[in-house]
């Protein structure tokens, strides 16, 4: 029995005016059924591009080498129409900014129904609507049967992210990819959404990839962690090992730089090389 997701030697290259740039370089990791993996890194680390590559959503200017296999099927060799049928069905994704990720012109119900019907041939609107309401109830949106007809702008930020999660879960996917799902949210709402993601995993057995810049967030959710820096995975380990005994100097420095809420640290450790490297890399 193979792992749910196997990423093997993944390299993502962008064509730019200055020539090709590798934003992800020979990345490999595996994710078992129902497991959770955190990918953590600063801006420019390639963590978001990795998540898009898993979903088959890389922009047309990017090219990809290596393998991304879901349940033993290599997605990189599959025609787009086949990948599309898996996308949203076997694997679903939620994004950083729930407001702009929902279409303002349609009710949230319609947008959830649409996700469900895209992968369930012959489902009536009525059935799909029932699924949408159930999905909204599962993510604890109160009064779901009424709220299903509301538009995204009528929801608060946290509720919108719940809608996104409901949409992703409507097809009962094996894998949920969450790209900075709480970064745009207030800290109290963040805590609720993180709890919800945990609960969903427990109850549905969905595997989770959590992309975040926030080490503390990753530490609360992920069983395994990949630390990325400028496209390279510098360290990967089970969460406990990584946070209690980090091996790579970058991981150590990163952990040193995180401000703590529990106490004041005399002098926070910065990572100068990161900043200068980002500039050399052509980042404005």
């Amino acid at each position: 029995m193979s792992a749910l997701l196997e990423v093997d030697d993944l390299t993502i290259t962008f064509r730019t005016a200055q020539g090709p740039v590798d934003v992800v370089d020979q990345l490999s990791f595996t994710l078992e059924q129902g497991a959770s993996l955190g990918i953590v890194g600063e801006s420019g680390s390639g963590k978001s591009m990795t998540s898009l590559a898993v979903m088959g959503l890389l922009p047309p200017t990017a090219s990809l080498r290596g393998r991304v296999s879901l349940d033993g099927t290599d997605l990189t060799n599959l025609p787009e129409s086949k990948v599309r049928r898996m996308r949203g069905d076997r694997m679903a994704m939620i994004f950083q900014d729930p407001l702009s990720s929902l279409n303002p012109y349609y009710t949230v119900g319609m947008q959830i129904e649409e996700a469900y019907r895209a992968h369930r041939a012959g489902v009536t609107r009525r059935q799909a609507r029932k699924v949408a309401i159930e999905a909204m109830e599962r993510v604890h949106i109160a009064d779901a049967s009424r709220r299903v007809d509301h538009y995204p702008h009528q929801f608060s930020g946290g509720m919108r992210q719940r809608v996104m999660i409901a949409m992703a879960l409507s097809t009962e996917p094996d894998l949920l990819v969450a790209d900075e799902p709480t970064t745009a949210l207030d800290v109290t709402v963040q805590a609720q959404i993180l709890d919800l993601l945990q609960e969903v995993r427990r109850e549905t057995g969905t595997a989770l990839i959590l992309i975040s810049h926030d080490l503390a967030v990753v530490s609360e959710i992920a069983e395994d962690v990949v630390v990325m820096r400028q496209g390279v995975a510098v360290e990967q380990a089970p969460a406990e090992r990584l946070f209690s005994d980090p091996q790579h100097p970058y991981t150590r420095a990163l952990l040193d730089a995180v401000p703590r809420i529990d106490d004041e640290i005399g002098e926070l450790r910065g990572i100068d090389s990161v900043e200068s490297a980002a500039r050399v890399g052509g980042k404005p």
């Binding site: 979903m55 949203g88 702009s100 929902l102 649409e114 895209a118």
Partner: peptide
């Protein structure tokens, strides 16, 4: 972003 979401749904 919502067009990206629509594609992520597999529409």
């Amino acid at each position: 972003n919502f067009v990206r979401t629509a594609r992520a749904k597999g529409l």
